[in-house]
């Protein structure tokens, strides 16, 4: 497993979806929530502390044990994935994740925006996407 976890944060900083994948040790639900809001505030501070004009917040964090790549949509929702530090190409995965989110979460009439994501179709398709990604196949829409 090269991807350790997938998380979605709403524009207020609350975790609306979070999952550790495969054999990655599971975080406690509470920790997951605090870490997500921590990431949200770090994102805001890093864009503020920039020495360069008009900076976004954190896009990549790299440490010796893992790497986080983050993408923020225009509406303020943040997606971030955690993976092995040597891994590249998370951009495509984040884009596909956003597609799944718009297709199976936002278009779901029973979903209230900004609330935790409990959509079966999203779960199924995310699992399928991860399987496809881990097997190293190109990420194309197969649905």
């Amino acid at each position: 497993m090269v991807v350790f976890g997938v998380y979605v944060i709403n524009k207020a900083g609350g975790l609306i979806y979070g999952q550790e994948l495969g054999a990655t040790p599971k975080l406690r639900a509470n920790d997951r929530l605090t870490l997500a809001s921590m990431f949200h505030s770090l994102y805001a501070i890093t864009s503020n502390l920039s020495p360069q004009v008009q900076s976004s917040g954190i896009e990549v964090i790299e440490t010796d044990t893992f790497k986080i790549q983050c993408k923020q949509t225009l509406t303020g929702t943040k997606f971030f994935v955690m993976s092995d530090p040597a891994h590249t190409g998370l951009d495509a995965l984040l884009r596909r994740l956003y597609e799944l989110y718009s297709d199976y979460v936002l278009k779901n009439p029973f979903y209230t925006p900004e609330m935790p994501i409990r959509c079966e179709l999203f779960d199924i398709n995310l699992a399928r996407l991860m399987e496809q990604y881990e097997s190293g196949r190109a990420l194309t829409a197969t649905f």
């Binding site: 921590m38 360069q52 917040g57 964090i61 790299e62 440490t63 010796d64």
Partner: peptide, 25 residues
């Protein structure tokens, strides 16, 4: 960030943060 990294890391960290990157720095 250091505490975030240590808490979220799936394996015990040794050196911790190496860098972070935004769109401009």
């Amino acid at each position: 960030i250091k505490s975030f990294v240590t808490r979220i890391s799936p394996k015990p960290v040794r050196e911790g943060l190496h860098y972070y990157k935004t769109s401009t720095y």
